[in-house]
Computed example of a mutant assay.
Amino acid sequence: MKNVAFIINPFSAKKNYQPFLDLLQKKIENPNFYISESLEGTEKFIKENYETTDIFVAVGGDGTISSVAKSLISTGKILAIFPAGSGNGFSNETNFTKNLDELLTKIKGNQFREIDTFKVNNQLSINVSGTGFDGKVVKEFEKTSRGFKNYIKVSIKTFFNYKPITVKFQSENFKKHDGEYLMLNVANTRQFGNNAYIAPQASTVDGLAEIVLVKKFPLAYGAIFAARMFSKNLKEDQYVTYLSVPEIEFTVNTQDWHLDGEYNKIDSPIHIKVLPKSLKILI
């Protein structure tokens, strides 16, 4: 498998990547792999191996996948995934599992499909990005040892103290949606991760992003919101609004964002733009 390269995030899977690497070296003789500790290192490795590699495998969570995908957008190169994150939303949505034999079979098949990605200002996103409550949650979550239980703890603690954000849209078509919200999410796929479906109707092949506007709701509604989200039944009501758009601009009075689960500071105004069929992904 000389045309395949593996990019491993050593901080994923509770920093326990060695079992994967040991198994990989048993399955493939002299595999081409890189232990990445920075975005710059990942970009350099891809550039150095670009001419001799057809498939780049991201080993990590959604942030790792996004960092690899950034260098593969609008090229002939194919992205593959071995999920090793805390949420694994994008790998869940694109049918990658923690089964190396299954992955290697896919690699031998060398089949792909083209999916959409999008940008938040000049930064790439492949899964779900957002601001407001969940941007703040990710900021605090990154201070913990991660894991689903810690995410829930941080979410509950943040909810009680969080003040709504103010969103103002640039287009007259969306001015009626100006207002205060608990959070605003931009979804290319259906879920954050851990099977939390924030946009059950989202598609990676329709050329559209789902803008999910969620107003701050009373505590009693929280159980309803969670039940609907984890059962793929979240829908529009007095607290939730969906806008399906190829492109949109707005301002928001916070810099706290998460891009595919990774915390980022982003200044307004915000420009969301879908890049249709911009990424080849292994099937």
Results as ranks from 00 to 15, higher is better:
Q170A: 15
Q170I: 07
K136W: 07
Q191I: 00
P164F: 00
L208I: 03
S129E: 06
K136H: 10
S155H: 07
E210A: 14
K215H: 02
K215G: 01
I165V: 15
S203E: 13
S125T: 11
R146G: 03
K143E: 14
F148N: 09
E114A: 09
V205D: 15
L182A: 06
G132R: 12
G193N: 01
D206Q: 11
I152T: 02
T158K: 03
K163W: 02
R190M: 07
L208G: 02
N161C: 11
A199S: 10
N161D: 14
V154C: 08
D178Y: 00
T144H: 00
K168S: 04
K175A: 05
K153L: 15
K119H: 09
S125A: 15
Q201H: 15
E172D: 12
R146Q: 14
K168P: 00
F133K: 12
K143N: 13
E210C: 14
S203G: 06
I211N: 02
E140F: 12
G147F: 05
K153M: 13
V138I: 15
N127F: 02
I198D: 10
G135S: 04
L182I: 07
P218D: 04
V154H: 12
Y181C: 03
I126M: 09
K139D: 12
M183D: 07
S171N: 15
A187D: 07
Y197E: 00
G132V: 10
F217W: 08
V120Q: 12
V120F: 13
T131L: 13
I211C: 03
